[in-house]
Design a binder for these strands. Structure first.
Length: 199
DNA sequence: AGGACGATTAACT
DNA sequence: GTTAATCGTCCTG
């Protein structure tokens, strides 16, 4: 199964968010170890008019990645200690992306457990936990996931298509004014335990 | 040069 | 329910 192309991300952010549910986030380590998880929760941040989006203050050294080509990784530090992993969406020049909030681990679980020292259910059930389990930091900011030889990418999973989708308010933006604080731009899905792990 | 704050997490009471 | 940890980024002066 191969990495999703730039065209997959060159769509309205909420369309990309919905279509990402059930896809796999994959990282190939330098020793060839494959780490992956099914994407089950994402969150859209859409344009300079979205006051919860980092790009609401315009293009800066930090936010320029959001203006980059769809499929680019946007990685930033929050609270002085946590890395957040986002995928750029829409169109080059328009700042938007999706925050990867939760995965269901599917491979490389031993490596993730070495990095996180937590039980299976605590490995990737939060945005900073995903970055930790996958070994993602600022050196990955601006990375092109769609390149043919990329080591971090999103992958199609034929076993999970058209996932049932719940729409809720985005999390952790309680100081953002309305209406943006309550827009249902957090998308999630539930996956059955009997299909949990497959490589 | 300094201060406020944050798309979080873990460890408390 | 609360709070500390911890630093890049942005704004003010």
């Amino acid at each position: 199964m191969s990495r999703l192309p730039c065209s997959f991300f060159t769509k309205p952010t909420l369309t990309v968010a919905r279509d990402c549910l059930g896809k796999k986030l994959v990282k190939i380590e330098s020793d060839g170890t494959r780490i992956s998880g099914t994407i089950i929760e994402v969150e859209g941040y859409i344009g300079e008019t979205d006051l919860a989006c980092h790009a609401s203050i315009g293009m800066t050294q930090r936010t320029q990645t959001l203006y980059d080509k769809p499929g680019t990784l946007y990685v930033y530090l929050i609270y002085g200690m946590h890395w957040m992993l986002n995928l750029v969406t829409e169109a080059e020049g328009f700042p938007a992306g999706i925050l990867i909030r939760a995965l269901f681990p599917t491979s490389g679980i031993n490596v993730m457990r070495e990095r996180r020292n937590k039980s299976m259910s605590e490995l990737t059930n939060g945005p900073a936990k995903i970055a930790q389990a996958f070994g993602i930091n600022n050196t990955w900011n601006g990375y092109n996931t769609c390149a043919p030889d990329s080591k971090l990418f999103v992958e199609y999973d034929p076993l999970r298509e058209n996932m049932e989708t719940d729409y809720e308010a985005r999390k952790g933006i309680h100081n953002t004014p309305e209406p943006w604080r309550s827009l249902p731009w957090n998308l999630s899905t539930q996956i059955e335990s009997n299909k949990e792990v497959h490589i």
